[in-house]
Amino acid sequence: MSYTAAATSKTPALIIYLLDVSGSMGTPDIVMPEGNRTSRIELVSKCLEDVAISMVARSTRGTSIQPRYRIALLAYSGQVWDVLGGIKTVDEFAQQGVPNLSPQNMTNTESAFLEAERILLAEIPNLPPNSPAPMVCHLTDGEYNGGDPGPVAQRIMNMSTPDGNVLVENIYIGPNPLGQTVADPTSWTGLTSESEISNQFVKELFRMSSVLPPNYVGIFREFGYHNWRDEARMLFAGNDSKMIEMAYVMSGVTPTR
């Protein structure tokens, strides 16, 4: 499992975003750099646009976009919505633009992971040789209703491709659930052990998160996150906009040429 395959137009990286749009995502408790507050879902939309711009930038040669990424965007509350209407290449996504997201009701996290699993089961056998390992990026702000998503997440992390197993990243938005204060998220070192977490739900997310592959760590550090530890999980938690931004950056670090 080398995780060295590059995202190219012939071997695009598949990234599935699972976005919790439950009612609590409307809570305006996100602290912005200017000191003002914004709602969780507004920040998610902004970060989604930022990561889309970053992916487009990393896919651009001259003034045309190479289809180096394929993106699925699933929003969930009591049910799951395929926001983009299927998997879109990054150039199609750029044409379409980032959709508006609005808070709904329940938090059926398991159903979102089941839908991601269904997509991956259909896609993995058809990935071109030398494709990068797919990535699932899940964002949530609280405990789930319905079934336990943990077993599905484990099955997804066990799905293998020649480049490596599918990677799962989790982003928890909410009051600091860590056993440490993160003064500057850009210098945060990541989490390598459950003992670093005080919140039970975030401990569950820790178990549902992959270790960031060494090859991706180098790229992540190039974005300015120099202190990220080699064995840290792909898990972010907090209500600081910089932390969430950093988490989204990680979802786009598949190597490119």
Binding site: E49, V56, T60, T63, G97
Partner: peptide, 17 residues
């Protein structure tokens, strides 16, 4: 020049670059 007839996401990406 950045071409006129490109999507706004791409314009943002090129401006960022």
């Amino acid at each position: 020049p950045i071409p006129d007839d490109i999507p706004s996401l791409m314009r943002s990406a090129l401006n960022r670059q």
